[in-house]
Design a protein around this nucleic acid. Structure first.
Lengths: 334, 334
DNA sequence: CTGTTAGCGCGTTCAA
DNA sequence: TTGAACGCGCTAACAG
């Protein structure tokens, strides 16, 4: 049972007294091998510590069983859950994950270069891709599924959480509960979900004949506090509802409201988030937010990708999932 | 410039009017190619959209430039940061990351099977490995670096954050500030860091002639609250200091202390954590904890791994880093 | 059912 | 400096 390095199918063949191709077949599903032969081969393989070389397999079958996952900012607090789900689901289907995490958006080009070289079977991307980059996937025949993004200008398969539905639920609840002076903390201008959610909120407020003050944040804790301060200054401290496009900023805003500015939440100021990350449910926050159905979304992403790997010509499809309203206690809703 | 699929070095060779091996050389460092020829080749490659096939390269050079990262629970709130750092650092060295995330510890065996098949050049592991599993790496000649774990019984390269130093700083501070009734919330029995930190705290308390009540948690938010309740019940509500072996449980305990049990923190109860995750620094918590030097640790892990890939016979080394005491405001220290 | 043969795309001798 | 030839470890026809 001494496992050794570099055991090949030839070594196994020799020990089992068969040909190399017999060994190959013995390790493939439903290949024609006599049960007795297969048994001898498996035994020999075990004794030698043989592990089929996936690299060599990939070279010849043109299927690496590798999928690239590209995520811009892993530290987002929301992505770890997504990443864990994705890798585990892919794993169940015999697919390995090649992970690329971007320090800066400008690293995308370099990352894509690596993606091509490894001949991945497909990719799941939660980062901003240019039209050219999107077409590069198409040209190379690499199936692609975008996560919480859509192909701008180019049709691409994607899974998203519905920003309109989500913000609508929050805005309607806030308006009906009597809030009138709204503030919104958006994301960086180059963030797709950030813009989506902010616009959704603005549009829904307009539908009620209301306007809102708007500032941008960076999706992080600090942005929440700073955004709130800015908005308060701009509105003469008259803000009574703050809509943040993600939970982390909402949490930062709550802390600032309570501990720095001295506003009761939700008594004097209602605050909402988006995502449903775990800290949102902590006692100290009980955030009113929209929880993304991560499990269903990741499941869909994986399913879509695998489908496209099997049948590359399936037409692009967008799957948009409704989030769940977590009433929480950071906002007065009706 | 129409990128096409499956462009090989032969295609480039034909277009540039050279041999395939010339193309190969043109893409390698310091191979002997006439500048003029290289230029022609590069041009042809560009025109065809040629990307060297890393799979084929790996097959022949026996270097996949792939490193496996195995992490048990990605949702730990502490690991995302580690993972992002690791992948980015490895990326800078031209190494790709094959990510494996475990749903259950029992998945390790299966994961290792995949690791062998992909002929990774090395692995960084933050999960519990048995002695046999550790030797499997050695037998197969796959360099291994453990993260926040050590090889129990087998010498293995590893990077850790010093539990003794960390807990000593916390315990000493608490004792000197007058705390006497201690409680400890540990991790699951099978967690290495959990046991390390709990034992470190217990030993240091013993050094001061003090004992502590002990319960186990699961490293999650809920465990903190439940652990605190259990300890309170056991001590007739006399607890005045609670040591949690990670931040998340400390945060859970703080919320429970303040909002459920009605104890002022740190006025009536001091609470400490370990890790230094970002929520620990949030206004609402300002946790007193030990921050792991993640950047230095990941840098060390990557450096150690790359060294061992270059020179497989380097002897195992443990690098233990001191954490930084974040005084915070959740505990009265001196 | 089994063995023989021919590549997959590339790096690497070895002569020229 | 360049090209011809070989082989990495394996799968996939194709005969037998």
């Amino acid at each position: 049972m001494t496992e050794k390095v570099g055991v090949t199918s030839y070594d196994v063949a020799r020990r089992a007294g068969v040909s190399q191709s017999a060994v190959s077949r013995a390790f493939r599903q439903g290949a024609s091998v006599a049960p007795a032969t297969r048994a001898r081969i498996v035994e020999a393989a075990q004794a030698l510590g043989y592990e089929p070389n996936a690299i060599a397999q990939g070279l010849i079958t043109k299927r690496s069983n590798l999928v690239a996952i590209i995520i811009s900012n892993l530290t987002n607090l929301y992505y770890p859950e997504v990443l864990a789900e994705l890798t585990q689901r892919l794993s169940q289907h015999g697919v390995r994950v090649l992970l690329f995490s971007l320090a800066a958006e400008s690293d995308v080009e370099e990352v894509l270069g690596q993606v091509w070289r490894y001949r991945v079977d497909g990719a799941i991307v939660a980062a901003r891709l240019s039209t050219e980059q999107l077409s590069a996937f198409a040209n190379r025949g690499v199936p692609l599924v975008l996560y919480n993004r859509i192909g701008e200008g180019v049709p691409v398969a994607s899974v998203c959480c519905d920003s309109d539905l989500g913000e609508r639920a929050l805005v309607d609840g806030l308006v009906q509960a009597g809030h009138r002076r709204f503030g919104i903390i958006g994301g960086p201008a180059d963030s797709y979900v950030g813009e989506e959610r902010a616009n959704a909120a603005i549009n829904r407020l307009a539908h009620h004949g209301l306007k809102a003050e708007f500032v941008r944040g960076q999706f992080d804790y600090e942005s929440g506090g700073e955004g709130l301060k800015t908005l308060m200054a701009r509105t003469d401290n008259q803000l009574d509802a703050l809509i943040c496009v993600n939970d982390l900023m909402a949490i930062g805003a709550m802390d600032t409201a309570r501990n720095i500015i001295g506003r009761k939440v939700p008594g004097e100021l209602s605050i909402t988030g988006f995502d449903g990350v775990s800290p949102a449910t902590w006692e100290a926050y009980q955030l009113t937010t929209i929880r993304q159905p991560v499990r269903r979304m990741t499941q869909a992403a994986v399913a879509m990708l695998l489908e496209r790997i099997e049948s590359p010509d399936i037409s692009p499809e967008q799957r948009v999932f409704a989030g769940e309203l977590l009433s929480g206690r950071s906002a007065r809703l009706l």
